[in-house]
């Protein structure tokens, strides 16, 4: 017997964010997790010595946010990241561009960078302490070295993946080297530069905490370590929370900047 297949809008896939109880599903999962944790802590299912209830952590956090120490730690940590980022990113982008544009530079530096990049930069900290002493400089430089390599590699990749045709247009129209650098290579590398920045922000946080654990007497990482020595677990968790918020904030900041600076580079969204 013949059947009729109806094709209309009723079978079309639903568009937009999935929602449960009117909230985006991405917001539901952390809330559920925190809720379960809270219940487990209050009923004694988990040991609050190690896993204090989220409400306790929040209360400690609010209390600490009233203190100068909290903001001092946050300030110095942000300063270390910012200075390290600028110290590493500016030369990284320049070297990456030079490698992408000039074959001799590429051939000279490629093996060097390939060999040095995999060294965990934190392993250099003792050497940097010897050279720069225990002050801020050694902390900046540790972060900067890491940023430098990531930015060099990603900028280089950005230049190389720029379609050749744009360089040919510039060459055909007799654009000078410098003009080609500024009007083709740099904008062409920007998507790569942003990829580099995104990775840098994550690894810079890791290095920041590692450096502050070992050689600092201030900063968010130091405060976490210090909380361990005096067994203030709530304070330790506040530190985790601050790091998490910083990571999220950096990620949003890079997204925002990317949309602002390279609006032509749209992600392929469904």
């Amino acid at each position: 017997m013949a059947t009729i297949e109806t094709i209309d809008v009723s079978r079309a896939p639903r568009k937009g964010t999935r929602r449960v109880l009117g909230m985006p599903i991405g917001l539901i999962s952390p809330i559920v997790l925190l809720g379960l944790w809270e219940i487990a802590a209050r009923t004694g299912a988990v040991n609050v010595t190690f896993f204090p209830a989220p409400s306790t952590i929040l209360a400690t956090g609010f209390a600490q946010a009233q203190t100068a120490q909290f903001w001092g730690d946050l300030g110095i940590s942000l300063q270390r990241i910012a200075v390290g980022l600028v110290m590493g990113a500016v030369p990284g982008v320049l070297v990456g561009l030079a490698m992408g544009l000039f074959r001799p530079v590429r051939e000279a530096l490629n093996p060097l960078i390939a060999a040095l990049f995999p060294i965990p930069k934190i392993a250099l900290l003792p050497l940097l302490l010897l050279i720069f002493g225990i002050g801020e400089t050694s902390k900046y430089v540790t972060i900067a070295i890491n940023v430098f390599f990531l930015m060099t590699i990603n900028t280089f990749a950005g230049v190389v993946s720029t379609p050749k045709i744009y360089f040919e247009v510039a060459r055909n129209l007799k654009a000078s080297r410098l003009k080609t650098y500024l009007t083709v290579a740099l904008p062409g590398a920007l998507p790569g530069i942003f990829t580099g920045l995104r990775i840098c922000m994550g690894t810079a946080l890791i290095l920041l905490v590692a450096v502050e654990f070992s050689t600092a007497d201030s900063g968010v990482g130091y405060r976490i370590w210090w909380a361990w020595t005096v067994f203030w677990v709530d304070t330790m968790y506040v530190g985790f929370l601050v790091i998490a918020i910083l990571g999220l904030g950096f990620s949003y900041a890079v997204d925002f900047l990317e949309r602002l600076v390279i609006p032509w580079h749209r992600k392929h969204e469904r």
């Binding site: 379609p163 045709i165 009007t183």
Partner: peptide
């Protein structure tokens, strides 16, 4: 005046 200007087969307008 520049000597030549080329119009390519592929899209060659700078996206930026």
């Amino acid at each position: 005046r520049p000597m030549t200007a080329m119009i390519f087969q592929q899209e060659s307008a700078f996206p930026w």
